[in-house]
């Protein structure tokens, strides 16, 4: 399996168990929706995969690379996993272009520019490259955050409640766009939501996490 998560457990302190013995298998290129009530620990799963939190036990393997087990704990910057945060986390002091280019230090200047253009075209926002995040609408911010996460060609991409900051009308329009973009890149994806409609419309597989 492309993503192999086994018996993952996590808590913030001894009294609050957030995640117990969580396991998940995902095929390459699949979009998986993790659905559940707020506070059920679904966002924590994403944070554990990225390495922003450390599990107390379990094993995480992606593309045959061990992220976490008894002996290993790769830092986030070594995991090659992209993430779109709930509030998008676009760097407010950088333009759209700089935001998208942020994770592309390993490329030459020309290749970097080409990759940024490619991504901005993919999300349909080439004309906004000189804008700052505060000059974008909610939907545009989300697409730029997605472009930024996809730019370094991550092994997988994680989306934390991608629609929670969008208006209902915008949400309906953007769901299909999002699915199309992810499918076009072929990247494996997990997204977390509390809305079954979101999950059914976008995901190949829905996992109910309670």
């Amino acid at each position: 399996m492309f993503v192999d998560i086994q018996s993952l457990s996590f808590d913030y302190d001894k009294h609050t168990k957030v995640l117990t013995e969580f396991s998940l298998l995902i095929k390459k290129g699949d979009i998986v929706a993790l659905i559940g009530r707020s506070g059920s620990g679904k966002s924590t799963v994403l944070r554990l995969i990225t390495g922003l939190e450390t599990p107390i036990k379990g094993r995480i393997t992606v593309n045959n690379k061990v992220f976490f087990d008894k002996h290993t704990n790769l830092p986030p910057e070594k995991r090659n996993v992209g993430m779109v945060f709930q509030d998008f986390a676009l760097f407010p002091h950088m333009t759209v272009k700089k935001n998208v280019a942020y994770g592309l230090d390993h490329l030459s200047k020309q290749k970097k520019a080409a990759r940024v253009n490619e991504l901005l075209e993919l999300v349909g926002l080439s004309h906004k490259e000189k804008n700052y995040p505060h000059q974008l609408s909610g939907g545009e911010k989300q697409r730029i955050a997605l472009a930024r996460a996809l730019a370094p060609k991550p092994d997988m991409i994680l989306l934390d409640e991608p629609f929670s900051n969008l208006d209902t009308e915008l949400k309906d329009a953007i769901r299909d766009q999002l699915k199309a973009i992810i499918k076009q890149t072929g990247v494996t994806c997990i997204f977390v939501t509390h809305d079954l409609k979101d999950a059914k419309q976008i995901a190949d597989k829905v996992i109910n996490h309670t």
């Binding site: 990225t50 390495g51 986030p76 910057e77 993430m83 945060f85 986390a89 230090d105 930024r148």
Partner: peptide, 25 residues
């Protein structure tokens, strides 16, 4: 913490994140 965390997921080390994201903000 999300700006910093976003930077980590974009393959930037802690020190680079400090100079590129944290300090400007």
């Amino acid at each position: 913490t999300t700006y910093t965390e976003a930077s980590y997921t974009l393959q930037k080390s802690k020190l680079k994140t400090l100079f590129l994201v944290d300090i400007p903000l």
